[in-house]
């Protein structure tokens, strides 16, 4: 047995165009999914730290329900389950305007929103109560204390876990191929269909995901360094500079 690699299949014919389309679709789902996930995550994460019990229960219900069911199931739910519940006119409109794409975006966004909310809750709860008390004792109002002290510190604390979640979100966009969204993994399979060259196609997909993820990771690392508070967090990274 032998396998002769022929990397030129990746740029001859339509393959190159498909890969670019795939990357664009993946980034499109990623961007919209991330927006939904961040919005839901911030709201649910904040609600879970509120002193009002029903709000906490509501947010916990959302988080536990959505993060404990596999993403694949959510894909099918948003694609096969939701449209039949909508009025016929909206259904027809959706079917003509890429329902698979929007189902994919919602599945990713709502699922990762539940995961993000835990990151945000952890960030808020990681700040000791004494920090708030100290802020108040300097004469700040509660709102000022939150705006100037608590929230800025919490946002810095969550950068590493949020990076993790963002990378997961990007990679999970590939699950959308199960409902027919032509994202990157889908396109690598398409190249395999046309050229019968699976290893080259999969390797191309792997490297593109790696490059995308490394780019995001390095941007986030830069953000972390740029906004680090000297002597407080991330001192290992910035040293005494």
């Amino acid at each position: 047995m032998s396998y002769n690699f022929n990397w030129s299949v990746l740029w001859t014919g339509q393959s190159g165009g498909w890969l670019i389309q795939g990357v664009l679709t993946t980034l499109h789902i990623f961007a919209l999914g991330l927006l939904i996930a961040l919005a839901l995550g911030i709201v649910a994460g904040a609600l879970r730290t509120m002193p009002i019990a029903p709000l906490r229960w509501f947010a916990s219900g959302y988080v536990e329900f959505f993060r404990n069911v596999p993403l694949l199931v959510w894909m099918f739910f948003w694609y096969f389950g939701v449209p039949p519940l909508l009025p016929q006119a909206i259904q027809d409109w959706l079917f003509d305007h890429g329902v698979e794409f929007w189902a994919g975006v919602f599945a990713i966004g709502v699922y990762h929103g539940a995961r993000f909310s835990e990151v945000i809750r952890a960030g808020i709860q990681a700040i000791p109560k004494t920090q708030l008390e100290a802020a108040l004792s300097t004469g700040l109002t509660v709102t000022q204390a939150f705006r100037l002290i608590i929230v800025p510190i919490a946002l810095r604390l969550i950068v590493p876990p949020a990076t993790n979640e963002t990378l997961n979100l990007l990679k999970n966009t590939s699950v959308a191929l199960t409902i027919g969204v032509a994202e990157l993994t889908f396109q690598t399979r398409q190249i395999e269909t046309y050229t019968a060259r699976a290893f080259e196609a999969l390797a191309a997909g792997t490297i593109i995901y790696l490059v995308l993820c490394l780019t995001i990771a390095s941007i986030m690392a830069h953000v972390e360094r740029r906004f680090a508070i000297p002597g407080m967090i991330a001192q290992g990274q910035t040293g005494a500079s």
């Binding site: 096969f80 449209p83 079917f95 199960t178 027919g180 032509a182 889908f186």
Partner: peptide, 18 residues
Amino acid sequence: LVEFPDQPAAFQALSQRQ
């Protein structure tokens, strides 16, 4: 074209008029 990974998903989409 909407491409599904397997028969059951494609048939589900057909029977739901997707």
